[in-house]
């Protein structure tokens, strides 16, 4: 027991090492939060372009661009994308690593969100679309008022899963020496030569965050389900 307390002291209290964890957590949350927003916006736009092309044949060139984007992002590892973003794209400019990580993870997530939302749009019965148009709504209005709300509800579990993946995926940010939660725990390990305590602490923090997130998603799903079949 004394040994455990001593290890705890060494890993977290001594020299204020807990700050590696808290600062890292702040970075992880910041990167995840903004990457999620970016991913939703990007994914949303790409999904609308792709479904519009599927349904009407319009936006041909934009659809090609979106396809290239999806192919490249989904065909290469996120770590490689992160490294390219940092060392190639922003290689010659002095830029905050947090911003680099947000862009890399946001662009990456956007590709997956796009396919999720597109599958949601496709899952809504075409009769809904026709009903919207027959009332006199434009294509855009029908999407906005009729299709997307139903699509969003259908894909909420898949979207939530994507954001859980994203939260955990940011743990590779250490590759560009960004001190996120994982990196913070690893720095402690390299100082104290004790792997168990800092790494388990990091794992527990990820786990708790995911569980809290899951809880909120469940609540949201229940609320949305109340309003329908």
């Amino acid at each position: 027991m004394d040994q455990l307390i001593e290890k705890f002291y060494m890993n977290f209290i001594k020299e204020d090492r807990w700050q590696y964890i808290t600062n890292g957590l702040r970075v992880t949350l910041t990167v995840t939060f903004f990457a999620v927003i970016m991913g939703i916006v990007l994914g949303f736009l790409v999904a609308v372009v792709r479904s519009t092309y599927d349904k009407t044949g319009k936006m041909k060139i934009l659809n090609i661009i979106c396809n290239v984007y999806l192919t490249i992002i989904r065909g290469t590892p996120v770590v490689v994308q992160l490294l390219i973003t940092y060392f190639v794209i922003f290689g010659s400019v002095n830029i905050n690593k947090v911003v680099v990580a947000v862009i890399a993870f946001g662009v990456n997530s956007g590709a997956y969100v796009a396919e999720i939302i597109r599958s949601g749009i496709m899952s809504v019965d075409n009769g809904q679309f026709e009903a919207g148009r027959s009332i006199g709504f434009t294509y855009g209005q029908t999407m906005l008022y009729i299709i997307l709300p139903q699509a969003f509800k259908n894909v909420l579990p898949a979207l939530a899963n994507e954001f859980i993946v994203l939260l955990k995926e940011t743990s590779v940010a250490g590759y560009i020496a960004l001190e996120d939660l994982t990196k913070g725990g690893d720095i402690i390990r390299s100082r104290t030569y004790d792997a168990f305590m800092p790494l388990i602490a990091v794992a527990v923090i990820y786990l708790v965050m995911v569980m809290i997130f899951n809880y909120f998603v469940k609540c949201l799903e229940r609320r949305l389900r109340n309003s329908e079949h």
Partner: peptide
């Protein structure tokens, strides 16, 4: 106005 075989009310 149009009325469909499958009603197509907006379920949400």
């Amino acid at each position: 106005g149009m009325v469909f075989q499958q009603f197509n009310l907006f379920p949400h």
